[in-house]
Lab assay of single mutants.
Amino acid sequence: MASQGTKRSYEQMETDGERQNATEIRASVGKMIGGIGRFYIQMCTELKLSDYEGRLIQNSLTIERMVLSAFDERRNKYLEEHPSAGKDPKKTGGPIYRRVNGKWMRELILYDKEEIRRIWRQANNGDDATAGLTHMMIWHSNLNDATYQRTRALVRTGMDPRMCSLMQGSTLPRRSGAAGAAVKGVGTMVMELVRMIKRGINDRNFWRGENGRKTRIAYERMCNILKGKFQTAAQKAMMDQVRESRNPGNAEFEDLTFLARSALILRGSVAHKSCLPACVYGPAVASGYDFEREGYSLVGIDPFRLLQNSQVYSLIRPNENPAHKSQLVWMACHSAAFEDLRVLSFIKGTKVLPRGKLSTRGVQIASNENMETMESSTLELRSRYWAIRTRSGGNTNQQRASAGQISIQPTFSVQRNLPFDRTTIMAAFNGNTEGRTSDMRTEIIRMMESARPEDVSFQGRGVFELSDEKAASPIVPSFDMSNEGSYFFGDNAEEYDN
């Protein structure tokens, strides 16, 4: 783990906690998980779902989305002020799938948001429990990260689609708070800032007046979040320049895209947490497990152990491969979309394939898809080993990566060399080191050039047997250095459309 220093740990961010010791953190995270579980059980009762239907990941996603929508204050306010045809701002819903006479049927349900809020609060001892809501947002974000390569979004903001390893959390809503900021990748933060800068260039009043003052505060806050992700002084200094700019424009845009590229080699610290679907927490609570009393951590053995003992089902389209669908969801559960496939294969105990080789589309089923041909199958979400999630980018030494994705962002704290394609990355730096950030740029390029592919990161860190909950005997895996390590390699994943 990167030293926490003055930073709060993510469990504290996750639970809005002030400084807590490890036991208190485990208890408050457990409380959050228990609340999600209780809410899910109650919703299944309301909807009269069978046990099997309640364990269907598509039903879980609909129920999670309903509660997130019920608590989305800004959108609710907007919907009330701008009524649109056929949208009731006070209601929320989605597809629920039921097994009827041996076939899967889709039923569109509609609930009062007020009623959903009441059920959620009741499951969370009367609190709004925003930490639990954020947790579900991060699960949705991790699922998107594993399912889609955001080529269009990258290109629109002047970045290269091969930089997708920097895009963790790119679909997280803005209201996801400190826990959300911690899991956002460098590219995601750059993209958010670039969008602001572009608006400022096109709209003279963007930075002016009372609204402009708020915009400015948001801009500086985002700059500080991004600065905190960088691990070298030169990158941090460049972020200070971007933040202090009187009138952010093209120079800042250039600096930010430069920094994003540099992060492929001088990786930023991005938190990883295993956020599971509500249909995993519900049955665990129903079986009598007391998360608050037992304590829970999002970055240790607990999620692995929970998945070892969970039964989750998914709808499967006619030509999809259930094992591939399982891999997709497994990666999402562990926030591992940008991790090295060699490491993932070792931990999972079966070969993890790149996205383009998977015969599976996303987990969600569109409303126009034919239910007649839908089957369902068990998702295999178990693992051979477990490993500690990392909050750091690993040290800054790398190795060759593949054509589709030119770097990785480690999820697990496991000893290995970190793949990246130096030639491709360095070719993108057209040696432009003039301007006010020239000395920093020169320094950053120097550090990137001296990074050695064969150097090892996370020295001495290994994986653990599932029986080793105290992480007492690390097993340090050895990897084939020459092997392909990137998930979005030469990829044809669908595009994420909101």
Rank of each mutant, 00 (worst) to 15 (best):
Q12H: 15
E14N: 02
G17E: 07
Q20T: 09
N21A: 03
T23R: 12
T23S: 13
E24R: 01
K31L: 09
G35D: 04
G37I: 10
C44M: 11
L47V: 14
L47G: 01
K48C: 07
D51C: 09
D51Q: 12
G54I: 01
S60H: 04
L61W: 04
T62E: 03
T62V: 13
E64P: 01
V67E: 13
D72K: 06
R74G: 07
N76P: 00
Y78R: 06
H82C: 14
A85F: 01
G93C: 07
R98H: 15
N101D: 14
G102K: 10
W104A: 01
M105H: 01
R106M: 10
K113D: 06
K113G: 02
K113H: 05
E114F: 12
E115C: 06
N124H: 14
N125V: 15
T130P: 15
H135G: 02
M136H: 01
M137N: 03
S141V: 11
N142M: 02
L143C: 12
T151K: 13
A153E: 01
R162T: 12
G169K: 03
G169L: 03
G169V: 05
L172D: 02
G180P: 02
A182F: 14
V183P: 01
G185S: 09
G187E: 12
M189V: 14
M191L: 15
V194M: 15
N202G: 05
N202Q: 15
F206Y: 10
F206R: 02
F206C: 09
F206E: 09
G212A: 09
R213W: 06
K214S: 06
A218K: 06
C223R: 13
L226H: 12
G228P: 00
K229C: 07
T232S: 11
A234W: 04
K236E: 13
A237K: 06
R246N: 06
N247K: 06
N250Q: 05
E252N: 10
F253Y: 11
A260G: 14
A263L: 06
I265H: 06
L266N: 08
R267C: 08
A278P: 01
V280G: 01
Y281G: 00
Y281M: 07
Y281T: 08
Y289R: 09
G295T: 08
I301D: 10
F304A: 12
R305A: 03
L307F: 14
L307S: 05
L315T: 01
I316F: 07
R317L: 00
A323D: 02
A323Q: 14
H324E: 12
H324W: 06
K325S: 01
L328E: 02
W330K: 03
W330G: 04
W330P: 01
M331F: 11
A332V: 07
C333M: 15
S335L: 00
A336M: 08
L341N: 08
S345N: 10
S345G: 08
I347L: 13
T350K: 10
T350V: 04
V352Q: 14
L353Q: 15
G356N: 01
K357T: 03
G362S: 01
G362I: 03
Q364F: 09
E369Q: 12
E372S: 06
S377L: 08
S377I: 13
W386I: 10
W386Q: 03
W386M: 11
A387T: 14
I388E: 03
R389C: 12
R391P: 02
R391I: 07
S392Y: 04
G393M: 04
G393Q: 02
N395K: 08
N395I: 14
Q398M: 15
Q399C: 05
R400H: 12
T411E: 02
T411L: 02
N417S: 06
T423Y: 02
M426E: 04
A427S: 11
A428W: 04
G431S: 15
S438Y: 10
T442I: 15
I444G: 04
I445Y: 04
A451V: 13
E454C: 07
E454L: 13
D455R: 09
V456L: 14
V463P: 00
E465N: 01
D468M: 11
D468H: 13
S473Y: 13
S478G: 00
